[in-house]
């Protein structure tokens, strides 16, 4: 009796129903939400591949009858932004020249500051941290003009270096917070052991802390890359036209008042500008989530 019961009763893993109400709800919601975000992207892509006559027909959802890459070429190399008519390429390279030093400098300084605030506390380091955090709550607009004056006095106003400095400083609060909160979760005894082993400030950082902190570096990099790449305000305020980042040039193309609105070029230009942050998210999404979760555990 009991033998047959054990043979015929539930055995092994419970079978999962593919169409349970829970799954329908879950995937239904996910599909709706993805459509909501993907539809505009779709419209942009198809529009950017159409010629102007086709666009004037007004069927924004229909795929292009005749695929043309001319708008992309024009957006990249020929569109007029203010005085120059060499497309977004100039802005792209400006943005790259702003992005790379800004990200490297801000992530380095933020990580070292976070390291000091978590492992090498000094008298008043808590107050220092509190003040730094306060910086995160001050609206940028308030500081816009004072920073102009400071940069002018330093002779950096209008230059790329000036913009790099601005990005580094404004990225400090959030990134230091991120690093500090991650580093305090690392076991204190590890740090003590390294000191007994004779490692100093830099050797502990490089050989002990860095190898354990990859996720948080990725998070910080992503925040900085996307933040700096998407920045418009600082770019327009603190640089001269020949140094304008891509976002500012995009605005100049899309908002230009002369001539006809070339929607296909606008779409292509917008997609080109968004490509960098998009790629970054695409390739590091997993690390990003892991890093955020790891940093959030302990204050």
């Amino acid at each position: 009796m009991t033998d047959t019961a054990t043979l015929t009763g539930p055995t092994g893993p419970r079978p999962k129903k593919a169409l349970s109400p829970r799954n329908i709800m879950l995937y239904g919601t996910l599909i709706v939400v993805s459509l909501y975000y993907l539809l505009p992207l779709y419209v942009m892509i198809v529009t950017s591949l159409k010629g102007m006559p086709e666009i004037r027909l007004g069927n924004i959802f229909s795929p292009p009858v005749e695929v043309t890459f001319q708008p992309w070429v024009k957006a990249w190399a020929e569109a007029c932004t203010g005085i120059n008519c060499d497309g977004l390429s100039r802005g792209f390279w400006n943005s790259v020249r702003i992005l790379i030093p800004s990200v490297l400098v801000s992530v380095s300084i933020a990580s070292i500051t976070g390291y000091v605030l978590s492992m090498w506390r000094f008298k008043g380091s808590e107050i220092f941290f509190a003040i730094l955090l306060l910086g995160a709550f001050i609206p940028y607009q308030v500081l816009l003009y004072p920073v102009v004056i400071v940069l002018r006095e330093l002779g950096l106003y209008g230059s790329l270096t000036g913009l790099v400095v601005v990005h580094t400083i404004f990225g400090m609060p959030i990134n230091v917070l991120l690093f500090r909160n991650y580093f305090v979760t690392l076991p204190e005894e590890l740090f003590k052991a390294a000191r007994v082993d004779g490692a100093g400030f830099w050797r502990i950082f490089v050989f002990i802390i860095l190898p354990m902190s990859l996720p948080i570096f990725v998070v910080s990099m992503i925040i900085q890359v996307t933040g700096i790449w998407n920045d418009f305000l600082f770019g327009v305020v603190y640089t001269r036209p020949e140094n304008y980042p891509m976002t500012v040039q995009l605005n100049n193309i899309v908002n230009s008042v002369q001539g006809v609105q070339e929607y296909n070029v606008n779409m292509a230009a917008t997609l080109l500008t968004g490509l960098v942050p998009l790629t970054v998210y695409f390739f590091s999404g997993k690390l990003f989530v892991r890093g955020i979760a790891a940093g959030a555990v302990k204050g």
């Binding site: 003590k192 390294a194 000191r195 007994v196």
Partner: peptide, 18 residues
């Protein structure tokens, strides 16, 4: 400094460099 004292320390959590 700790390393100049001629001491070695063993911790409860081992504290091995992972």
């Amino acid at each position: 400094e700790p390393n100049e004292r001629g001491i070695g320390m063993v911790f409860q959590s081992y504290a091995l460099y992972p």
